[in-house]
């Protein structure tokens, strides 16, 4: 017999509580100490007027530094995991991840290009976002010309175009000013949430919502698509159209994420896998679970990234340190999972 699972409602509730706990906990972390009563006071003061027993600096740090960073960590974690789970479903491949269509390679090239032109942070984000979408569009049109299986063509085109953009990024690194531009590019490629401001949050919020909401609503249909195009069509699903919609949404949230954080790997692969273990493969349950889990995971990793050492450790390095060994453990485990 297959082993009995913890009921879905219990898992979702636990993940929800865990997320709230992680968010609360993250408010206290940082070089500048804020105690619970001060935090409570600052938050309450926004709604009703109370006598101030905290410094102005505390309020500024809380609202302008920690809050945007916490929100962004949760959003990016949620997006990358949801995108990973979606790509896995529509490519019928449990190893698929958000960078499979070249979205991250394109974003990296865009960001490097913007840094080379000495653009400001906002323009770097914009470049990354546009190049990411451009890459996926190019990949999509190439795959339509490719002979043979559509899914395979798409993945292969993704690898090819991705490596083309990676070569472009390498060239930019070569010609970049090694005093300021090269370190900036390198740091961007390592991935970090240190640039999070209220402004960046508002910029990415719309594309993220535009991608996440359809992915959430269409989650049952993704199940049917995992059975293959012909079978899905006989069950009343326009598989070509649904696949394009899901790819567009997943790519949109990936592009929005990497454009503000740089390259953060592994989240989109590891979190959906863990979520599959928790709630099974049915996307009706998998999608909400993986969204919550991803948010919690990236928030906690970011807490480590900004508090473990005196200087911040880039997030991408940490996710790789956690993700890669964990994945080796997953694939070498005896018990079959999928």
């Amino acid at each position: 017999m297959d082993k009995k699972r913890v009921p879905y409602s219990v898992i979702i509730l636990s993940l929800g509580i865990l997320l709230i706990a992680a968010i609360t906990f993250s408010f206290f972390l940082g070089r500048y100490p804020i105690n619970p009563s001060q935090l409570f006071g600052i938050l309450v003061s926004r709604v009703i007027h109370i006598r101030q027993f905290w410094t102005d600096q505390m309020a500024t740090i809380l609202f302008n530094v920690r809050l945007p960073r916490i929100i962004l960590a949760c959003l990016v974690g949620c997006c990358l995991s949801a995108a990973g789970a979606s790509y896995q479903g529509i490519f019928q491949n449990p190893m698929a991840a958000p960078d499979i269509l070249g979205a991250t390679a394109g974003a990296a090239f865009g960001a490097a290009l913007a840094i080379l032109q000495n653009q400001n942070h906002l323009v770097i984000t914009l470049y990354a976002f546009c190049f990411s979408l451009l890459t996926v569009t190019v990949v999509y049109f190439i795959s339509r010309k490719a002979q043979g299986k559509q899914v395979l063509g798409l993945v292969l085109a993704g690898i090819m175009v991705g490596s083309l953009f990676s070569a472009g990024t390498s060239y930019i690194k070569l010609v970049a000013d090694s005093n300021n531009q090269l370190p900036a590019i390198t740091y961007w490629l390592m991935g970090s949430l240190s640039g999070a401001t209220t402004q960046t949050v508002t910029i990415v919020l719309l594309p993220m919502a535009l991608g996440l909401i359809p992915l959430f609503l269409l989650r049952w249909r993704i199940n049917v698509l995992t059975l293959g195009d012909d079978e899905a069509r006989t069950m009343g699903i326009n598989s070509t159209r649904l696949r394009i919609i899901v790819i567009m949404c997943a790519t949109l949230v990936t592009a929005a994420s990497v454009s503000v954080t740089g390259m953060i790997g592994w989240v989109g692969l590891v979190i959906p896998h863990l979520s599959r273990r928790l709630v099974g493969n049915n996307y009706k349950h998998l999608m909400p679970a993986t969204m919550l889990f991803g948010a919690i995971f990236l928030l906690l990793v970011d807490d480590v990234s900004r508090n473990l050492l005196q200087t911040e450790i880039p997030l991408g390095i940490l996710t790789a340190f956690i993700g890669a060994p964990f994945f080796i453990y997953l694939i070498t485990r005896k018990e079959e999972t999928y």
Binding site: L227, D230, T234, M235, R276, G280, N281, N282
Partner: peptide, 30 residues
């Protein structure tokens, strides 16, 4: 079409292990 005619392919192995219940439930998608 899906309301008129249903298809039973050869017994196969999908990429993901769905529960039997979920697998059958997919037939009601239409």
């Amino acid at each position: 079409m899906a309301k008129l005619i249903a298809y039973v392919p050869q017994s196969h192995y999908p990429s993901f292990n769905f529960s039997v219940f979920d697998m059958v439930l997919m037939g009601t998608t239409v």
